[in-house]
Computed example of a mutant assay.
Amino acid sequence: MREINPLSLNVVRLFLSSAFYIPLVLYLGLPALTPERWAILILSGVIGFTVADWFFLEGMQIMGVSRAAILVTFHPILTMFVAHYTLGRPLTAGLLAGAFSITLAVILTATESDPSGRVNWKGVAYVFLAQLMWTFAVIVTDWLVTGESAFSIIGLRIGFGALGGLIFLPSIKNDLKKLDKKGWGLIGLITLFGTILGHYFFTLALKFAGSSIATPVTESSPIMASILAVIFLKERLTRRLLYAMILTTLGILMIGIWG
């Protein structure tokens, strides 16, 4: 995002991902969904990929990778509680203890001031709005994937997300002209590992483990992202960020061991 804006990056990766998924989904056959489920599938794709991912990338550009990644750890906590009360997923003492530790980490990160001494509420707002939308999308995917192909469900959600991104094409054309071969190569890697493979394996996890367990377990990703951002992007490693990393790691361990 030092080359192009977050909206452009999100739309392009959705187009590339859908170009991979949709032909295979059509070849394998569409899932037998009711009109109601089709409508919900379309809505979850647009909200979860077109809008929520864009909001997160905006927040990440404002706050930096390390801080935005830690804030994202609140998303599985919210998902865990919603999944319990809507889909009957388990809610154990280990999950609650891990949730408490991760919530403390989020509070530390959200209230940390930038170098000028101000709390960047705009970045926090973008990330939290993204999390609310992701929670809706994950719960819906958990519900839709029951008895259906995980590949088809995630492929169609990404496809509908790309369809929603068509509205932004006129505003990103000039941005895309800035990209050189290296830029397109990096977007290709992001698309392959982050969108195509990452979301497919996560959807499989939802199918076999349920959203209340699968989503919190993925929270090792923000810790790794935060550490790598400090090392390679030279982002600030403050005492608050370090404490937040430790609390998040403890929370993940509690969920993994006792959840």
Rank of each mutant, 00 (worst) to 15 (best):
F56M: 14
G159Y: 04
L163P: 02
A162W: 04
Q131V: 12
F136Y: 15
R67V: 05
T86Q: 03
Y126E: 04
H75L: 12
A137T: 13
S66F: 02
A150Q: 05
W38Q: 10
F100Y: 08
V106K: 02
G164S: 13
A137W: 05
W38L: 10
P115K: 09
I158Y: 08
I167H: 12
G117H: 10
I154V: 15
A97E: 05
E148Q: 15
I47G: 06
T135I: 11
I42A: 07
S66D: 03
W143P: 01
A39Q: 08
G159M: 03
R67K: 14
I47W: 09
R67F: 06
V127A: 13
F49I: 03
A39T: 11
T73V: 14
T111R: 12
F74V: 14
G164P: 06
A68F: 10
S116W: 03
V140D: 03
I62H: 09
G164E: 14
I42F: 05
F55Y: 11
S66Q: 06
S149L: 02
F56C: 00
G117S: 10
T141L: 01
A93Y: 13
G155P: 09
A69Q: 08
S113V: 13
V138N: 15
S113I: 06
S149Y: 04
G123M: 05
T141P: 00
S113K: 11
F55P: 00
W121D: 07
G155I: 07
T103F: 15
T79S: 13
F49G: 00
I167F: 15
A137G: 06
L156P: 00
T73H: 08
A110Q: 11
S66L: 05
L163K: 05
I47R: 05
W54T: 15
I107S: 10
I77Y: 00
T79V: 13
D142Y: 06
L104N: 06
L91N: 12
V145D: 12
D142F: 06
F100L: 15
G123S: 10
G165Q: 04
R89G: 04
R67E: 14
A130P: 01
A39W: 09
F74K: 02
